[in-house]
Design a protein around this nucleic acid. Structure first.
Lengths: 153, 153
DNA sequence: CAGAATCCCCCGAGATACTG
DNA sequence: CAGTATCTCGGGGGATTCTG
């Protein structure tokens, strides 16, 4: 990936005119990060920790729906990536705190940009896919679309 | 999710002081979008189509590694989300073109911000997790970290 | 309190073969 | 050319139980 600090490859500079350099992107760190962003809990934890440091059970209660297993694994992953620090207070019932490293904090910005985009454009996406209430109707909508495609193509 | 166009909830404004409103975020479109970002091919396709419109096999060749099934499913998903359009040229061997909708184009910006972050901070992440060459050493590193944790906590 | 271990299930995703 | 149809497998992720 050549030169990192001065001139960033900026593969995605969204003016990109060229056929897109796959090697620079597919094999490159973006995929890895995208994957983390996509997993079910990581970014949620990052956001929570972006507010302030939390203890384990504090996170567990705050997130609601996550299993202990997944919370632990998620934290481990983020810690391994250097996004989250972990500090053990050697008290009698042990207390473990988690928080964002500087690296983790720096992620907050592009992440919030993406989240803001999501919030802003949610209505358009909802409209695009049929907009009717979720549930049985969704399948009906998909069926209609498939059929529309058949008629068209 | 209240008011969307004037004052965006901006849940993630990274100064966020409050305990983080889970309801506004967890159940909200961000998760959905994050998931899309995380899936193996979607964002790659978006980026490719960000350069210019492509035909099906053109994408298939460009991406290298994607199966027909996955390419089709990915395109379908993006189309359903309103990020990608699809146009069938009623020629004799059928020709189908895909491209980004306006919505899709608008995604390019936050997406590139995230990718740029990834490229910029890849070294730090690599260093954080041990930095040795991938493969068997990775497991050794993980083992070391686990042991370090045991010794510490 | 903060996990580790174990079991289990579902589905994302690849391989392969066939088609209008 | 641009798909669809099946089969298959690995792993992401949940529920439950046990422990320092």
């Amino acid at each position: 990936m050549s030169d990192t600090n001065t001139r960033v490859p900026s593969v995605l500079a969204h003016e990109l005119p060229r056929p897109v350099p796959m090697d620079e992107l597919a094999a490159c760190p973006a995929s890895e990060v995208f994957r983390r962003v996509g997993d079910k809990w990581s970014m949620l934890v990052v956001i929570l920790l972006g507010g302030r440091a939390h203890r384990y059970n504090e996170l567990h209660r705050a997130i609601e729906g996550i299993s202990q297993r997944m919370l632990t694994r998620t934290l481990r992953g983020l810690e391994d990536d250097g996004l989250v620090w972990r500090h053990v207070h050697p008290t009698v019932p042990p207390g473990v705190e988690y928080g964002l490293t500087e690296l983790g904090v720096s992620l907050l910005e592009p992440l919030s940009a993406l989240a803001d985009w999501a919030v802003r454009h949610a209505p358009e996406m909802a409209e695009a896919r049929g907009a009717e209430a979720p549930g049985a109707e969704t399948r009906a909508a998909e069926a209609r679309r498939a059929e529309a495609r058949r008629a068209e193509g």
